[in-house]
Design a binder for these strands. Structure first.
Length: 446
RNA sequence: UCCGAAGUAGCUCAGUUGGUUAGAGCAUCUGACUGUUAAUCAGAGGGUCGUAGGUUCAAGUCCUACCUUCGGAGCCA
């Protein structure tokens, strides 16, 4: 195989001649010296071009370069005289292409402009750092699953019916079989997998046609959904906690360089240790009421009313999550939710049928829900009556009910949104930077 | 879908109570500089002021509609 050199490994070649293939990130000139910044996807290195050390041709070639021109540069690796890094004493250059004037400059840009140029924006150092952290998080998820006896059990993306709500699905035509929907979760299929393989997970893109326009929502996002036979809610919470700690530790260990580029406060991540606080929905409502945070509800005439105390049974909004989380330095697990606020498949607490054995994990620093999980209803009669209560088409769930007919066992699982975790760990302003090409309500390009 | 905000040079923005030739920084181009770090300095080019209509002697500025985008809410991961 051809010998290739990359900037992130350049320290191994001090004093030796190497060839770097990449793009010009920036160039500064100072009389008979030029300082091109060369990037290759693994990092950025400064080149030093001295007019008296190179041929006339090389000097003229460097003068022609524009930002993002593609080049192959040969030179000797040396220590930077002022900084604790390496630079390249340039000897030769081969120009692959002189780039047209590049729209993204090292100066500030607005959100819309950057979003329109997402295909170029991903070249910027911060975006590269985020994508590296994303990769580490995904790899950590898969490694954790592999090391702990889970089997990958991917679910279909075309699904014939809705797993949760029905209003928030994208649909498309499927030959002569009518409409199919893009999966908003693979959970029901993962449950079938858990009955076959014990512990499984699916991992893939999911789609929600919610007309939501906030920094915490994408219409296409990636989710990992583990599902475990013979796990109750408490086993589920133990696993979630262990899993999240593992992921954060992996990023701290392997992506410290990227976190530094993102100016992330590492101490906030180092605090993410076991055990996570576990509070019931009722206790969370107490905290909300103690802080006097109202529920804001729209009235028929369009005006808003503030309701205090917080009415039992309502789901939390962003201000309520914030009130619950702000006293802690690590993710908070809120469990035992009112059944009316949650999906049909969640198991009712036998001691209190008004609540279900579900858990939401709220990330620190205002990042909201990163994990939602539950023990699943394993009783055939209860499950089918809940399907009816939710007005879901029974025939579409016959296969799912089979799982309760043929060796039903207690089981649990959860789903974790990858972009929300990336966003939290990188402390991003918006989910759109946590995925290469975000799909938002008002943006489906590039 | 609802509430709020914004559209002026390639980009980020300024533009006064409506007033005569629409400004700056960056980017681009030309030049100076042998250690630059968002380099600096000198010069040049670059505009359908989102679109359409209206008020006025006069509209980037005021009014109406539309378009686009941004922020938030609800829903959720």
């Amino acid at each position: 195989m051809k010998k290739r050199y990359y900037i992130d490994k350049i320290a191994d070649y001090v004093g030796r001649e190497v060839t770097i293939q990449g793009w010009l990130y920036n160039i500064r000139t100072s009389g008979k010296l030029m300082f091109p910044q060369l990037r290759d996807g693994t990092g950025i290195i400064q080149g030093v071009v001295s007019q008296k050390e190179v041929t006339e041709q090389v000097w003229e070639d460097f003068k022609k370069l524009t930002q993002e021109s593609s080049i192959i540069v040969t030179g000797t690796v040396s220590k930077h005289p002022k900084k604790d890094e390496f630079e390249l004493q340039v000897k030769d250059i081969k120009i692959i292409q002189i780039a047209e004037p590049y729209p993204i400059t090292p100066k500030d840009h607005g959100v819309e402009f950057l979003a329109d140029h997402r295909h170029l924006w991903v070249r910027s150092p911060k975006q590269v750092a985020i994508l590296k952290v994303r990769e580490e998080i995904i790899k950590a998820c898969r490694d954790y699953m592999y090391e702990n006896g889970f089997t990958l059990f991917d679910s279909p993306i075309f699904t014939p019916n809705a797993a949760e709500g029905t209003t928030t699905l994208f649909s498309t035509d499927y030959f002569d079989l009518g409409k199919v929907y893009l999966a908003q979760t693979g959970q029901l299929y993962a449950e079938a997998g858990a009955m076959a393989l014990g512990k499984v997970y699916d991992f893939g893109p999911t789609f929600r046609a919610e007309r939501s326009k906030t920094r915490r929502h994408l219409n296409e996002f990636w989710m990992i959904e583990p599902e475990m036979a013979f796990y109750d809610l408490y086993d589920d919470m133990d696993l979630i906690e262990d899993f999240i700690v593992y992921i954060v530790e992996r990023v701290l260990k392997n992506r410290s360089k990227e976190l530094a580029i993102l100016e992330r406060d590492i101490s906030k991540l180092e605090a993410v240790k076991k055990p996570f606080p576990r509070i019931t929905y009722d206790e969370a409502v107490d905290i909300i009421n103690k802080k006097n945070v109202p529920l804001i509800r729209k009235k028929a005439d369009g005006s808003e009313e503030e309701i205090r105390p917080f009415p039992w049974g309502e789901d939390f909004g962003a201000p309520h999550e914030e009130a619950v989380v702000e006293d802690y330095d690590r993710p908070v697990m809120v469990y035992n939710w009112p059944s009316e606020a949650k999906a049909f498949y969640m198991k009712r607490d036998p001691d209190n049928p008004k609540v279900v054995r579900g858990v939401d994990v709220l990330a620190p620093e205002g990042y909201g829900e990163i994990v939602g999980g539950s023990e699943r209803e394993d009783d055939l009669e209860l499950l089918s009556s809940r399907i009816k209560e939710h007005n879901l088409p029974m025939e579409a769930f016959e296969w799912y009910l089979d799982l309760r007919r043929f060796g039903s066992v207690p089981h649990s699982g959860f789903g974790m949104g990858i972009e929300r975790v990336v966003s939290w760990i990188c402390k991003l302003d918006h989910l759109r930077e946590a995925i290469p090409f975000p799909r938002l309500m008002y943006r489906n390009r590039p």
